[in-house]
């Protein structure tokens, strides 16, 4: 297992290229509307500052949604049996045109009995933003 380079794979003929997603403020507003989570720390600098955050942050569930998207891309939309993570560090999204990039990389892929387990690392810049992100899919 390693954080960089190719993940160890089972029998799957799948490329586990890291998946990159750009998040801008507009994406946070879009996710707020789609999910119904209007917590102002995800759109108001004032409120984010008041609660001690370095700035407006992405919804943890948006980041986990990107992880789900990466898993779908890697596995050709395999049936998801498990998906989850800890929200360990904030994804701070600046109020500019370029936003930030969240990168989802597979670190270990194991195949057993028709079930594929994918351990990942999810980074925003140098920061790991999720703890123990993991997916289990049907092969």
């Amino acid at each position: 297992m390693s954080a960089s380079g190719s993940p160890s794979t089972g029998s799957e003929a799948v490329e586990f290229e890291p998946q990159r997603f750009t998040l801008t403020r507009a994406d946070l507003v879009r996710y707020a509307g789609a999910s119904g989570d209007f917590n102002p720390i995800h759109w108001s600098d004032r409120v984010a500052g008041e609660v001690g955050l370095p700035g407006v942050i992405a919804h943890g569930m948006l980041t986990l949604g990107l992880v789900g998207s990466a898993v779908a891309a890697w596995t050709g939309d395999a049936e998801v049996l498990e998906l989850g993570a800890k929200f360990t560090a904030p994804v701070v999204v600046p109020d500019d045109e370029s936003g930030v990039v969240v990168e989802v990389a597979a670190t270990k892929v194991t195949s057993d009995n028709g079930v594929v387990t994918i351990a990942m690392e999810v980074r925003c810049g140098a920061d790991k933003v999720l703890g123990m992100p993991k997916a289990v899919v049907r092969a």
Partner: peptide, 28 residues
Amino acid sequence: AKVTEFAVATQWRGAGVPPTFPILLLND
């Protein structure tokens, strides 16, 4: 319609319903 809206918002690169979609109900 809601699945499409949620899929766009999570940059979904699959077909079908994104696995985090039930968060709508879980939030409530």
